[in-house]
Amino acid sequence: MWKKAIVAVLVLTIAAAVVVAVIDNLPSASAADQPVAEATAVPTATGNRFGAGGQAAGQAAGQHGQDNQGSGAAVQQELNQSVDNVGEAWSAAVTVAELGDVGMHVTLEDGTPLYIELGPSFFWQEQGTLEPGDIVTVDGFYNGDQYHAASITKADGTLLALRSETGQPLWSGGASNAGGAQHGDQANGGTGEVQVAPEDWVTLDATVLTVNRNGLTIESADGETLALSFGKASFWQEQAVQFAAGDAVTIQGFWQDGQFQTGQVTKVATGERILLRDPNGRPLWGGPGRQGGNGGQGGHSAPVTG
């Protein structure tokens, strides 16, 4: 008897899942009825890089941005018809109209207004400035409610990095604030704990001696040689800043247990920088497992990627 009951439960589970899958994936009737919004006004999808993990990150960020949608909400509604999947990556060239605490109002090339969530302003302001009238390229994703910026490239090439490629907010201290990276291929690292007090950050002016897989060896202005390890190699290498011996660099970091922990490295000649730790000193390369829903594993320990 109980065997039949178990089989029945299992069969019902699968049947229900199939029904839910069909319902979830039916094309929306309203979307089918309405004309597609002006194609030129729609930010260009660049691939589904963020996936469902982006949703979670977006939700975290959305706490900051709910009250700032303004006129962008109408446009978002319109854009819903042309962006099929939540968490779809996109990029667009926009003109900054107005800056808020956690986002900005912009206009697209055809004049369509849009609100883009940027996260806390203290974080991106540390990387550069934005002014109304600036023309910038925004890479980010759309999670069904709101547009979130992952990076902003200014006309002069300055890059403001706001989220990782999995959509994880860089200001939040890595794994501890992410809900999951569906396609997160970041491996490990990251700790949920504050690593450094704000006053303990130090800035070093230095010259690169060697470049290796783990980081840089530098000679600081006072002649000290330091071997800097940048954590997960793929994380900083993906930020695509090329260092070479002889480059002048500015390094922000802090001392911990006799080791220098690098937070960010800026190449003086070009202004390019790589970000390695958040303002609390927490590694940014940490990440949760792909299944989401169990973020906050933190530590150096997120075991599963996928």
Binding site: T13, A17, D24, A52, G180, Q182, Q291, G292, G293
Partner: peptide, 17 residues
């Protein structure tokens, strides 16, 4: 599965199912 069943919690969509 989580993408196929977005309306279900992940623990159901990618666990129990």
């Amino acid at each position: 599965l989580p993408e196929l069943l977005p309306s279900l919690p992940t623990i159901i969509a990618n666990g129990w199912v």
